[in-house]
Design a protein around this nucleic acid. Structure first.
Lengths: 129, 129
DNA sequence: CTCATTTGATTAACATGGTAATGATACAGC
DNA sequence: GCTGTATCATTACCATGTTAATCAAATGAG
């Protein structure tokens, strides 16, 4: 990711903020919980990021009329411009990794990591005996 | 790691702090740079952690007589007690992962990650064209 | 020896991870 | 319709990641 940061830094966007606006770019209007989930960001972090991203005009925030607790988020045209500017570099990073590490190995690596992560969820055979 | 945190939380020690005192437990007296390196912690973070760990009496800090810029760190008997109390749980976590995920696969996973990480260091074929 | 450079540590400033507490709205049961 | 509970978001608080700036000590060139 650190390869990637300079491009984002030029837009004053962190990697986490990038994930948020990219999710909104791809999915359209989403509520905050879905965004947090898809961007792997905790709720308290997202709250802070929403404030910052909205102040800078990258996203807009609305209350859900159907459920007053929920917050709906949407990317703005300014935000879209950033995504469209950064995306080519982003794709290049992944293409480069695929080329140099091997796409098949990348996939295998991700599979293993996912499986390892799911293992740890299944139970707690730890610290409770 | 989150499996591991309850045990550490009982001692009011974070995962990063655990890595620091474990390194010092195993290596004896070390200077700050080596500790930061072995525990994968950045210098500014380590500076803050030293303050906290020293205040609580888990480590001691001395100036290096041979090089006044360097700081030497050493675990105290209090710190040693914590390590000896937590270590069994720590080993259990790794043993559990080895058992459930497979020790060979764990090793393969670590190898792949190391190789991937080293790839990214070699150059920057990114963002500079 | 003196000065410029280098190196190690610290500080500062900001963003995020993480947990707990609080607030506000929905909702189920009565 | 009210009330207790559950759910979503926010706030508060602290630790760490991250970069840049600063400070102090060591080192090298002259």
């Amino acid at each position: 990711m650190s390869h990637f940061r300079p491009i984002l830094a030029a837009h004053d966007v962190t990697e986490q903020q990038w994930r948020v606006i990219r999710v909104l770019y791809e999915a359209g209007k989403l509520d905050a919980t879905e965004v947090a989930d898809k961007a792997s960001i905790l709720a308290p972090s997202l709250t802070r990021m929403i404030r910052s991203l909205e102040e800078r005009g990258f996203i807009s925030k609305h209350k859900d009329d159907a459920d007053g607790r929920r917050v709906l988020l949407q990317i703005t045209s300014t935000g879209r411009e950033i995504v469209e500017d950064v995306m080519p570099e982003s794709l290049k990073v992944y293409a480069d990794i695929d080329a140099r590490f091997g796409a098949a190995r990348v996939e295998r690596l991700l599979d293993m990591l996912e499986e390892l992560a799911s293992l740890k969820m299944e139970n707690g055979s730890l610290g409770e005996e």
